[in-house]
């Protein structure tokens, strides 16, 4: 494995009571890339995130993060190694201010204790939350909550950010903002893997697109190539029998 591959997934499978949610998936994510995971509902995208973050243990296969097999490691250990996750349904701490929410990400992330404040501030800047710093999380709109979710994940100083549908439910302006935020996150040193349904956003932001269908990886490549791939079109629109 070359040094500039941050995440290498090899032959990973996971079943739930006989249902194969992820089957024999292998791919690599180069360091510094923005990589999108797409596929119809139930294709195994979220399961895949749960496998990488240690929430589930794969039945077989290896997940190499920076050369280390993290398959089956605990979520806490995976987080400390430098993998952060932003949830689709934003899970901020409602009674806390924006700053406090982001600070929790920094406190338990990889910043040294002296850098917590600086990291908190820069993550809020990056996510465009600086003006909302003293707002309480429960006062925020859906779009602001999503940005808070990403800011809190980034405050952990992750080398890999997993973003679960960061653009779902956002209006076009908010989506454009989110795309810019993820780009800035990448420029700040994080590799970004996102699960996303918003195709224009995926096309605009991704270096690579991976397509899952029924748990199997059916295609991967540059966004334009993926958009023309007959297997992908069939997976999304169905085929004429």
């Amino acid at each position: 494995m070359s040094a500039d591959v941050i995440l290498a997934v090899r032959g990973v499978s996971k079943s739930f009571r006989g249902l194969k949610a992820v089957r024999d998936v292998s791919f690599e994510v180069p360091r510094g890339a923005i990589c999108s995971l797409i596929g119809p509902n139930g294709a195994g995208k979220s399961t895949f995130f749960n496998l990488v973050t240690g929430y589930f243990r794969p039945d077989s296969g290896t997940i190499l993060f920076e050369g280390r097999d993290i398959a089956g490691a605990s979520p806490v250990d995976v987080a400390h190694l430098g993998v952060a996750r932003a949830f689709q349904i934003a899970k901020p701490f409602p009674g806390m201010s924006v700053t406090e929410n982001v600070r929790i990400g920094a406190l338990f992330g990889r910043a040294g204790p002296r850098d917590v404040e600086a990291v908190t501030q820069s993550a809020m800047q990056l996510a465009g939350l600086a003006e909302l710093h003293d707002r309480e999380a429960r006062e925020l709109t859906v779009g602001q909550l999503r940005r808070l979710e990403v800011a809190r994940a980034l405050a952990a100083r992750p080398s890999l950010l997993l973003a679960d549908e960061p653009c779902a439910g956002l209006n076009p302006t908010e989506t454009a903002e989110m795309v810019a935020i993820l780009r800035r996150a990448r420029d700040a040193g994080a590799t970004v893997v996102l699960v996303e349904h918003d195709m224009p956003a995926v096309m605009e932001i991704s270096d690579t697109v991976l397509v899952l269908e029924a748990g199997a990886l059916i295609a991967q490549g540059a966004p334009q190539a993926i958009a023309r791939d007959p297997r992908v079109i069939a997976a999304y629109l169905g085929t004429e029998e």
Partner: peptide, 23 residues
């Protein structure tokens, strides 16, 4: 730090774990 971790556990223990809180 302990207090912030405890609050995170109260809000959502699984999220806390993924944020790296040693629950």
């Amino acid at each position: 730090k302990l207090g912030y971790g405890l609050l995170a556990i109260r809000e959502d223990e699984d999220t806390a774990r993924m944020l790296g809180v040693p629950t």
